[in-house]
Amino acid sequence: MAVVAEVAPVVANTRNRNGRRDVHTSRQARIGWMFSTPALIFVGMVTIFPIVFSVALSLSNVSVTGSGFALQGFTFSNYSQLVHSSTWRYALGFTVIYTVVTVLVELVLGTAIALALERLTKGRGLMMALLLLPWSIITVISAELWQYIYEGTYGVLQAIFQALGLGAPVFLGSPTSAVVSMMVADVWKTTPFVAVIVIAGLVMLPGDVYEAAACDGASAWTIFWKITLPLLRPTIAIAVLFRILQAFGVFDLPFVLTGGGPGTATTSLAILSYKVMFQNIDYGPGAAVAVSATLLVVLGCLAFLRVFKAQVGREEIQ
């Protein structure tokens, strides 16, 4: 991946001797603001405002009346409720484990698929289109499809197992198998995403470095570990970053597949927030869950970027 080594200053120093910016730059800036303002307002309304409001909700006592709801007072009680709630602690643990496991599996599988596809000269386009099908299906729909597959009595897997005389396995009915089944559905859908990002990185790698390695006497295995993988680090870092962001907020898959169950087995932080806010109509704690999830994502990404600062956005391959 050819990423610029240093971000050059975006706007050159355009101040003239009087300290005023020259007419041309001022005009450009004004036009820029003119066109950006509507989008900024929209983004602000849809993104910034809800975030700020959620934080406000999470720090107040929220009472619900017949005609709406009201914020009363400033308190940390919503957050202390969270910390003492085993459901929240489970949701936190589950979301983290879910993220780690699915991202790791998708990374390994996605990279393997990318390496295999990269060798194809003919038919690569067709294979990539087929590969991307799971990713392109709307999650809600694919979750429904997996429900059909996993369903306890009439599901596809049930039929196969019974035909093979292997009894009646339970997929979504028990906590552990529900978690695993959900992870399988996620890996099926999201591995193509990782594969596509890794392929993009692979085709940008300098070809003559591989020829040099061949002349130097490197085997295919050595080339993979000592050359391909190190050179792919920036690309893999980007893919992992995206996946962590997505996985931490997983909602649609568990919501449709299991409803967060059985019990609370597949209740992620996002699902929990939804249930508390809109099913229990408990806005304060619900907002607290949402804010806690956001904080964790932000912290996770900051930690990740710290470690991979050298890779993401700074490495240059000449």
């Binding site: 300098p206 003559d208 470095v209 020829e211 040099a212 190190p230 050179l231 391959i317």
Partner: peptide, 13 residues
């Protein structure tokens, strides 16, 4: 044999 490439083909990392 040992080859010197036009664009050097050095291992960037």
């Amino acid at each position: 044999i040992a080859m010197v490439f036009q664009n050097y083909a050095l291992y960037p990392h």
